[in-house]
């Protein structure tokens, strides 16, 4: 396995060039080659969703992709949501904080990266829609209820125009 490939990936707006083995997982690349350890690895078989990142704006499981597949693409990780964190957070992160939407915090980056594009597509989701949206992310601590509350709160924060906040 000595074959190496040089790849260029834009992560959180910054260009990274690394020489890697073709078998290197995208999750390991982000965490161990780029030191972006906010992306967590929970199962490495695509079920738990903890490693979710945005790949050209869409949520993917970084444990089910190879780093070389990201060559020439844009990846956003949790670190990219709020560049001035922890002092300044993304509204979704703020909402998770206020609603106690996390306990151990290990699965949280995956939830956030699943929910950011979800809220862009559906700015005013119902509880049921939120639960469906996060059904591919496992959390063992919260029982999901405060996560659902956090998403409702975030929807309100991100769309301060009351006409977009009609209750459902």
């Amino acid at each position: 396995m000595s074959e190496q490939m040089t790849i260029r990936v834009t992560i959180n707006g910054k260009a990274y060039e690394r020489t890697v083995e073709p078998r290197l997982l995208l999750s390991d690349f982000l965490r161990h080659e780029c030191d972006l350890t906010g992306t967590h690895v929970g199962c490495e078989h695509g079920v738990c969703g903890a490693c979710t990142v945005l790949f050209d704006g869409l949520p993917v499981r970084s444990c089910l992709m190879f780093a070389v597949q990201a060559h020439g693409h844009e990846v956003t990780t949790v670190e990219g949501l709020a560049p001035e964190a922890p002092e300044r957070l993304h509204p979704l992160q703020e909402a998770f904080w206020e609603a106690h939407g996390l306990q151990c915090g290990f699965c949280t980056p995956g939830f956030l990266m699943t929910l950011v594009p979800f809220l862009e597509q559906n700015p005013n989701p119902s509880d049921e829609e939120i639960r469906e949206a996060i059904a591919g992310n496992l959390c063992r601590c919260t029982g999901y209820q405060h996560i659902v509350s956090a998403v409702k709160l975030a929807a309100a924060k991100m769309h301060p125009d009351p006409s977009l906040r009609e209750t459902r």
Binding site: R31, H32, D35, L36, T37, G38, T39, H40, V41, T77, V78, E79, L81, A82, A85, P86, E87, L89, Q93, F96, W97, E98, H100, L102, G105, F106, T108, P109, L112
Partner: peptide, 21 residues
Amino acid sequence: IKRNEDPVLLSGRALFTDDVH
């Protein structure tokens, strides 16, 4: 009251064991 530990956890800046390099 909301938790003191949350901002680092939410922003992916908390240290878990596998984050030690």
